[in-house]
């Protein structure tokens, strides 16, 4: 049996395994993070560490909707990030053995499986895919021309 933290994105329910989460933070002050892709909306101070905040709904192409006060801090060292979602629900115990693992026919959905919990579907968020997605968004083409500011008179 596995502990799962469900959260809402629009009308859809997603879940992350407890082992993938460091903590859930509440009412943290967001700070301006310049030069970042639009999905990375802010930076927060989590126990003295600067972590970027990813608007998960925006990143996965959902219609914009309000973000909750609470945010999820991921525990992976290669993906130190805070996820802003619409609403975090209370923890569930599910049997992941019964989960349907999805093939990666649509990797941009970032879903690695679906759990049926008393007749409700919970999509398991695929952090590997999400990391790739964020990585792609962070690549900005470098300049190969003289900047306009040398262009004068």
């Amino acid at each position: 049996m596995t502990l799962l933290l469900p959260f809402m994105l629009g009308a859809e329910r997603y879940g992350l395994k407890l082992t993938e989460i460091q903590e859930v933070v509440e009412e943290v002050e967001p700070y301006y993070l310049p030069a970042a892709p639009p999905e990375v909306i802010a930076a927060v101070n989590v126990h003295g560490r600067i972590l970027p905040v990813l608007d998960l709904a925006l990143c996965l192409g959902f219609a914009p909707s309000p973000r909750g006060e609470r945010m999820i801090v991921l525990s992976r060292p290669d993906f130190a990030l805070v996820l802003a979602v619409h609403q975090i629900e209370s923890m569930l115990t599910v049997d992941l053995e019964q989960a349907t693992l999805s093939q990666s026919d649509a990797p941009e959905d970032c879903i690695c499986g679906v759990v049926n919990w008393h007749g409700q579907m919970i999509s398991l968020l695929d952090l590997d895919q999400l990391r790739k997605l964020v990585e792609e968004k962070c690549i900005v083409p470098g300049g190969d021309r003289v900047p306009a500011c040398t262009d004068r008179r």
């Binding site: 310049p34 030069a35 970042a36 927060v44 101070n45 990030l81 990391r131 964020v134 962070c138």
Partner: peptide, 23 residues
């Protein structure tokens, strides 16, 4: 932190005395 470390134009961040973050 990765994967944002390579972001061009951003030289890192710092936490000031009042806990606020400046890049």
């Amino acid at each position: 932190p990765s994967p944002l470390e390579g972001l061009r134009g951003l030289g890192g961040g710092t936490i000031l005395g009042d806990g606020s973050i400046v890049f």
